[in-house]
């Protein structure tokens, strides 16, 4: 299967998007002082990595990985395996999203509690514990 211009264009576009999103979110996580912005950047980073995982199992012009009829014909099976999307990265991402949901909720609750107790969300001022 020869790759057309459009395929190349979209794949490159997605890759650059991922790179830029990862760069921006890592900057947000590392350098921004506000805890709220840190958490937002963290969720962007999670989504970037999730899309990267899906992207690794993706094929252009593919079919869903559902085998409609069980056939012992090797030719058909081979055609199916070469054209179907790899479902495992999607399963991994699904698990990661669920875990991320729990962690993000917990982080947001903690941020709320930090604000209640410190009256600030500036991470430079929350330094009662010196590591």
């Amino acid at each position: 299967m020869s790759t057309s211009f459009l395929e190349n264009f979209f794949i490159t576009l997605i890759l650059y998007n991922l790179l830029v999103a990862a760069g921006i979110s890592i900057y947000g996580v590392v350098a921004r002082p506000s805890i709220t912005k840190k958490i937002i950047s963290l969720t962007i980073l999670q989504d970037t990595f999730n899309i990267l995982a899906i992207f690794l199992g993706f094929k252009v012009f593919s079919i869903p990985p559902v085998l409609l009829e069980l056939d012992s014909d090797i030719e058909k099976l081979l055609a199916f395996t070469t054209s179907a999307v790899d479902p495992l990265p999607q399963a991994l991402v699904l698990t990661a999203i669920v875990i991320g949901l729990a962690v993000n909720l917990f982080l947001i609750f903690l941020a709320l509690q930090v604000f209640r107790l410190y009256r600030t969300l500036d991470s430079r001022k929350i330094k009662e514990l010196k590591g």
Partner: peptide, 30 residues
């Protein structure tokens, strides 16, 4: 105060660590 602060720092850092391990697992798979 200290429990919430310690837990927040631990949790935030730990989430990043978990993400990096997730990416490592995905690279292993691919």
């Amino acid at each position: 105060r200290e429990a919430v602060e310690a837990s927040f720092k631990y949790a935030f850092f730990g989430t990043i660590a978990g993400l990096l391990y997730f990416i490592a697992a995905v690279i292993t798979y691919s």
